[in-house]
């Protein structure tokens, strides 16, 4: 559930984040109107509390996966919720790329698409990897919440058996499992980020 939603939110969020940076004032592909539209979409969709967003996305889930309950169905709201978050994270990572480096590449006659694919993304990679790790961890939390409205997964287990049936041991073990998952995601993310960092 988390892996798939991370995957889809990166697919949507990465181009969105890059577009926001390059269409900005003094960006490499300045488009103020498009930039305003993107900013608004990201901000509005980030303002929704996740639990509300999940319910709002039910029709979309029904169209895409044909159901609103269960693990597969909750991938839709999770991806929708995480995409603007990923976009912001990617935006920040891309903005960290040295302006001088971009200028030097422009001075070689690079096209905007070359700058994005060969400079912005590779140079920001260590930071992007950490950002995606953060997204995954957030998604673990969100997915536990998705469990509350029939999304399945560990959260479902914790709330249904642990909370409603007062089976504290099940609740505790689900929580411990979640902690272990979060820890391992962070550990792997850090390792990966280090591996791609050449500084």
């Amino acid at each position: 559930m988390v892996i798939f939603s991370t995957f889809f939110s990166v697919i949507i969020g990465l181009p969105l984040g890059i577009l926001v940076v390059i269409t900005e004032k003094n960006g490499i592909w300045e488009k103020p109107k498009l930039n305003w539209i993107l900013e608004t979409i990201i901000n509005v969709s980030r303002s929704f509390p996740f639990i509300i967003l999940m319910i709002l996305v039910f029709p979309l889930s029904r169209i895409i996966v044909g159901s609103t309950i269960g693990t597969t169905a909750s991938i839709v709201p999770l991806s929708v919720a995480a995409s603007p978050f990923v976009a912001r994270i990617i935006e920040n990572s891309i903005k960290e790329v040295d302006k001088g480096v971009i200028e030097s590449v422009i001075s070689m006659g690079a096209k905007p698409i070359d700058i994005i694919l060969k400079v912005l993304i590779p140079e920001a990679m260590p930071s992007i990897v950490l950002g995606i790790t953060l997204t995954m961890i957030n998604l673990v939390g969100f997915s536990a919440m998705a469990g509350a409205i029939g999304g399945g997964g560990l959260g479902d287990l914790a709330i249904r058996y642990g909370f409603y049936r007062f089976q504290t041991d099940i609740m505790m073990s689900s929580v411990i499992l979640i902690i272990i998952i979060v820890q391992s995601i962070q550990f792997i993310g850090n390792k990966l980020s280090k591996a791609v960092n050449k500084n």
């Binding site: 040295d98 480096v101 422009i106 006659g109």
Partner: peptide
Amino acid sequence: ELRGLRKNIGMIFQSFNLLNSK
């Protein structure tokens, strides 16, 4: 045409501006 021109003009900078990932 501008990209073509820039290929004919090399430039170096105070902060070197190399790609750290390469």
